[in-house]
Amino acid sequence: MSGPFRDEELLAAHVADLIGDVRHVAVGNASPIPATAALLARARGKGRPYVSLLGSRRHTFFTDGGVELFDCAGQGRIDVFFLSGGQIDGEANINLVSIGDHDKPTARFPGSFGSGYLYYVVPKVILFRTEHSRRTLVPKVDFISAPGASDPNVYRTGGPICLITNRCLFDFDRASRRFRLASLHPGHSLDEVIEHTGFDFDQPDAVPITKAPDAATLRLLREVVAPEVAEVYPQFAAHVFGFTRAA
């Protein structure tokens, strides 16, 4: 990676652009870069969108328990959510459960969290995986925590719009159930992406480079967002921004 910014800052800035102009962004567990992106979007939008960070006291408005998030989502009151997977395949199926035989797995992940519901009902789900390898981006997942697409009769008001990795951004086309390479991050090549991706994907004739964050974005990230992120992800904030909260 070249340039006076870290990979995490590039990804967070780009995800903030992907969030767009919406009313409510929610971020689940173990998602420091999406949390950073959502808070950056809010800092840019002077308070819009509402941001709900699970596990945060300050950056969530819910007062009715964990169920309120899912009730909101069921009604279409959450516009953007983030999901990842131990494995993600070419049809955007995600696996948060295990590798190998389900009853005798060779690897076990924490579990599916809210994915088996939120993937269906949040209009813009941004898939996020910072390890872009054939180990993580596979032809077919071993366990479907949530499917990337559903049959036409299945109630589905949401789903994946893209997959962002440490190497590139893919858009997801729900009709063809395929990813399409949208941009390469600075310093990464098409050959490298092909080499490290386990599934087939579409690509344009000329692949653009992911836009680098500008000075104003970097300043917002480091001065406004970093202390906010530190409440929920202290280790991440210390590692990426060198931010340590006063005791």
């Binding site: 088996g116 939120l118 949530a146």
Partner: peptide, 12 residues
């Protein structure tokens, strides 16, 4: 509950 259809959560 909405969701779940087509997942292996449901299959198991």
């Amino acid at each position: 509950l909405r969701g779940l259809i087509g997942s292996d959560l449901l299959a198991h």
